[in-house]
Computed example of a mutant assay.
Amino acid sequence: MEMHYNYVRLKEILNTNKEFGFFALIQLDWAATHFFTSHPHDLTWNGNAYIADSTILEIENPRYSEVVDREAYTISLSAMNTNLMNEVKSGIVHRPVTVKLGFTLDGEPQLGNNDLFNIYTGRVANSKFVTENEQQILNIECSAPLSNLDETSGILTTKSFMQSQIDATDTTFDYLHEDSKTSTKGWGRIGKD
Rank of each mutant, 00 (worst) to 15 (best):
K89W: 00
K89L: 09
S90C: 02
S90M: 08
G91P: 06
V93I: 15
V97Q: 06
V99C: 14
L101M: 13
L101E: 05
L101T: 00
E108Q: 10
E108M: 10
E108D: 09
P109H: 07
P109C: 12
Q110F: 07
Q110S: 13
L111K: 11
N113I: 07
N113T: 07
D115G: 06
D115A: 13
N118G: 05
I119K: 01
Y120A: 13
T121Q: 14
R123S: 12
V124C: 14
V124S: 08
A125Y: 11
A125I: 03
A125D: 11
N126I: 03
N126Q: 14
S127Y: 07
S127A: 14
K128C: 04
T131C: 05
T131L: 09
T131K: 07
E132D: 11
E132H: 08
E134Q: 12
E134C: 10
Q135D: 08
Q135W: 02
I137W: 02
I137M: 01
N139H: 05
N139G: 02
N139A: 15
E141P: 01
C142S: 08
C142R: 05
S143Q: 10
S143Y: 03
A144L: 05
A144V: 04
P145M: 05
P145H: 12
L146G: 13
S147P: 01
S147A: 15
L149R: 08
D150W: 05
